[in-house]
Amino acid sequence: MSENAIVLDLAVAVNGIAWRLFPVDFTTVEGTFSVYLYALNREHAAAILLELKETAVLRDGDLVGITHE
């Protein structure tokens, strides 16, 4: 695995509650791509995706690192 790889757990516990990883696919003229989000279940993931569609903005600057708390 590349030292630049981002590794995501399939599920994480937050305050004793399991959040599962869900893939989200989207298509552009360049092709089909994926992003991932954590949610409690598929319905929750759909609600988060809807909220993202309505409110998401691209941050200024480039991603320089990932930290784990």
Score class of each variant (00 low, 15 high):
Leu8Pro: 03
Asp60Ser: 15
Ala11Met: 04
Ala11Gly: 10
Pro23Phe: 01
Gly31Ser: 02
Glu3Lys: 11
Leu10Cys: 07
Val12Arg: 05
Val24Glu: 06
Ala18Cys: 08
Val7Pro: 05
Thr32Cys: 04
Ala11Arg: 10
Ala5Glu: 09
Gly31Thr: 01
Thr28Leu: 10
Asp62Ala: 15
Phe26Ile: 02
Asn4Pro: 00
Glu30Ile: 07
Val64Arg: 09
Leu10Tyr: 08
Ile66Arg: 12
Ala56Tyr: 08
Val35Asp: 10
Tyr36Met: 04
Val29Ile: 13
Asp9Gln: 15
Ile48Lys: 14
Glu30Ser: 14
Leu52Tyr: 10
Pro23Lys: 01
Lys53Val: 03
Glu69Gly: 15
Ile66Asp: 09
Leu40Thr: 01
Arg20Tyr: 14
Thr28Pro: 05
Leu52Trp: 07
Asp62His: 14
Ala46Lys: 10
Ala47Pro: 04
Val12Leu: 05
Asn15Ala: 10
Glu69Trp: 08
Lys53Asp: 04
Glu54Asn: 15
Val24Trp: 06
Ala18Ile: 11
Glu51His: 15
Ser2Gln: 05
Gly65Leu: 03
Ala18Tyr: 11
Ile17Tyr: 09
Phe26Thr: 00
Asn41Thr: 06
Ala47Met: 09
His44Trp: 03
Leu40Tyr: 03
Glu51Gln: 13
Ser34Phe: 06
Gly31Asp: 00
Gly61Ser: 00
Asn41Cys: 11
Phe26His: 06
Glu69Asp: 12
Thr55Pro: 09
Leu10Ser: 10
Ile6Trp: 01
Tyr36Ala: 05
Gly31Pro: 03
Asn15Thr: 08
Phe22Val: 00
Phe22His: 04
Leu8Ile: 00
Glu30Gln: 13
Gly61Ala: 00
His68Asn: 11
Ile66His: 14
Thr27His: 07
Ala13Gly: 06
Ala39Arg: 01
Asp25Cys: 11
Ile6Gln: 08
Gly31Gln: 01
Val24Asn: 04
Glu43Pro: 05
Ala11Tyr: 09
Ala11Trp: 06
Val35Ala: 13
Ile17Ala: 12
Thr27Asp: 08
Gly16Phe: 06
Ala18His: 13
Val64Gly: 10
Arg42Gly: 07
Ile66Cys: 13
Tyr36Pro: 03
Ala39Ile: 01
Ser2Pro: 01
Ala39Trp: 00
Asp62Glu: 14
Ala45Arg: 07
Glu30Asp: 15
Ala46Cys: 07
Ile66Lys: 13
Arg42Asn: 09
Leu8His: 02
Val12Ile: 09
Ala56Met: 08
His68Val: 11
Gly61Ile: 00
Asp62Met: 12
Leu58Glu: 12
Leu40Met: 05
Thr55Ala: 10
Ile66Ser: 11
Ile17Met: 10
Ala18Val: 11
Glu54His: 13
Val7Gly: 05
Leu10Asn: 10
Phe26Leu: 05
Ala39Glu: 00
Leu10Gln: 12
His44Phe: 01
Gly65Ile: 01
His68Gly: 07
